[in-house]
Structures are given as C-alpha cells and as structure tokens.
C-alpha cells in the first residue's frame, strides 16, 4: 500500500539505490540492514552502480489491480556486479529487449500513485541500453 510514511521511509533505496556491503562476507544488501545474515554488524554504506545486466526476466500479463492498466509489463532481475541483484520493472520495454545478459541502466520513474488524489511514489526502474 502506498502511504506517505512508507515513501518517506524507503527514500534511500528507492530514490538513490543506497544499501550496505558486509565487510566480512562481502554481500550487498539493498535496502540497507543493520546485521548481515552472516552475523556481522560491520556493514559499510554503498550505492549501486547505474548500469547492470539482465540475469532473468518475466512478463506479467495479469497484474495486481493497481497495475492492471499497465499490463503486460516486464520484471527483470538485474545484476549490478559483485553479486548485487535487484528485482525491477523494465520500463519502455520491447520484447526484443528481454534477453539474458542485456545491458540495462536505471532511470528514475513513477512507481505507483495512491489513486487520483493520493501521494505519488517514485523509484528506479531498469531501461534497456541502446545496442
């Protein structure tokens, strides 16, 4: 559900792709967390790069009611390097963009609107880079 408090709370990772990297095991976490599953509290702040590659993809034909006028839409898992992976929508997608290994970049887009008069939620989506 899109609420003002949630949008405000999620700004670091939704707006700026901010997360943390574990100094012990090297894993990356977006959004940031206080303790790594390896048990370490030694986490350093990091920002995901703007470009990555499609690791896998799917096309949603029957979406959540909030997105039913956007179907079909594509969801992709993007690998940003060093094992950091994020599930994102592929914006402006064409079927030929859906290739494993395809280079994508992130763009700031509108994610949700709480009805006609509610708050707007923004965040990053992937878009295919020119080949």
């Amino acid at each position: 559900m899109t609420t003002s408090a949630r949008i405000w709370r999620e700004k670091p990772h939704r707006y700026r792709l901010e997360g943390v990297r574990c100094k012990k095991c090297g894993r990356t976490w977006v959004p940031a967390r206080q303790v790594c599953p390896c048990g370490s509290r030694g986490l350093s702040a990091m920002v995901l790069p703007e470009e990555g590659r499609i690791l896998t993809w799917t096309v949603v034909h029957t979406g959540h009611p909030e997105f039913s006028d956007s179907t079909p839409y594509a969801l992709v898992v993007v690998e940003f390097g060093k094992g950091a992976r994020l599930l994102m929508q592929l914006a402006d997608f064409r079927r030929e963009d859906l290739k494993i290994g395809r280079k994508v970049k992130v763009e700031f887009r509108k994610v949700q609107a709480a009805g006609e008069s509610g708050v707007l939620c923004y965040g990053y989506k992937a878009v295919a880079c020119s080949e």
Binding site: S70, F108, R109, K110, V111, Y122, K125
Partner: peptide
Amino acid sequence: PAPDQDVITLSAEAAK
C-alpha cells in the same frame, strides 16, 4: 512521456 514519466522523473534524469 511514458506513463511512468512526469516532470519529476524527467527533471531527476536531467539533473543527474
């Protein structure tokens, strides 16, 4: 503009 683009999103990309 795409359905998920508006003045805020276009501005953010230009600003970056």
